[in-house]
C-alpha cells in the first residue's frame, strides 16, 4: 500500500535528461547502414567465385577492410541500441537490468570479434 500522492508518483525520480543521444545513434547508424549494406551485398555478389580464397583476398584489400570494419561497428551498434529499446519496453526491474547488461556484453564481444577477424585476415593475407 502507498499513500504517495498521484502527482508524486507521476513525477517519480524526475527526468534522466538523456535519451536524445540514443535516439540520434539509432538513426545515424540506420542511415550509415544503407550505403554500407548495399556496398557489402553488391561486392559479395560481384565476386567471381564464392570460395574461401576469393573472400579472404577481397577482405584483405585495405579499402574493403576499412569499410567492413565500419559496417561491423554500425551494424552492431544499431543492433545494440535497438535491442535496448525492446528490453526497456518489455522487461522491467532486476530482470531488465540483467538483460540489458547481457545484451551490451554480447554486442561488445561481437564488435571486438568482428574487427579482430577483419584485421587478422587483412594483415595475414598480406604476408
Amino acid at each position: 500500500m502507498s499513500l504517495q500522492s498521484p502527482l508524486g508518483k507521476a513525477l517519480g525520480h524526475g527526468s534522466a535528461k538523456t535519451g536524445l543521444d540514443h535516439w540520434l545513434a539509432q538513426r545515424s547508424t540506420a542511415i550509415a547502414l544503407v550505403p554500407l549494406g548495399l556496398w557489402f551485398t553488391v561486392s559479395l555478389l560481384l565476386l567471381p567465385h564464392g570460395s574461401h580464397e576469393f573472400v579472404v583476398a577481397w577482405v584483405a584489400e585495405p579499402l574493403n577492410a576499412i569499410l567492413l570494419i565500419l559496417l561491423v561497428i554500425a551494424l552492431v551498434y544499431h543492433s545494440m541500441v535497438g535491442l535496448q529499446v525492446i528490453v526497456e519496453d518489455y522487461v522491467q526491474g532486476g530482470l531488465g537490468y540483467l538483460t540489458m547488461i547481457t545484451v551490451q556484453f554480447v554486442h561488445i564481444l561481437l564488435v571486438v570479434a568482428g574487427i579482430y577477424s577483419i584485421i587478422v585476415i587483412s594483415l595475414g593475407a598480406g604476408q
Binding site: G14, S15, A16, K17, T18, G19, L20, H22, E88
Partner: peptide
C-alpha cells in the same frame, strides 16, 4: 529538459 528521458518521451 523535463521531457528528455528514455521513458517520459522516448
Amino acid at each position: 529538459d523535463e521531457l528528455e528521458d528514455p521513458f517520459r518521451l522516448y
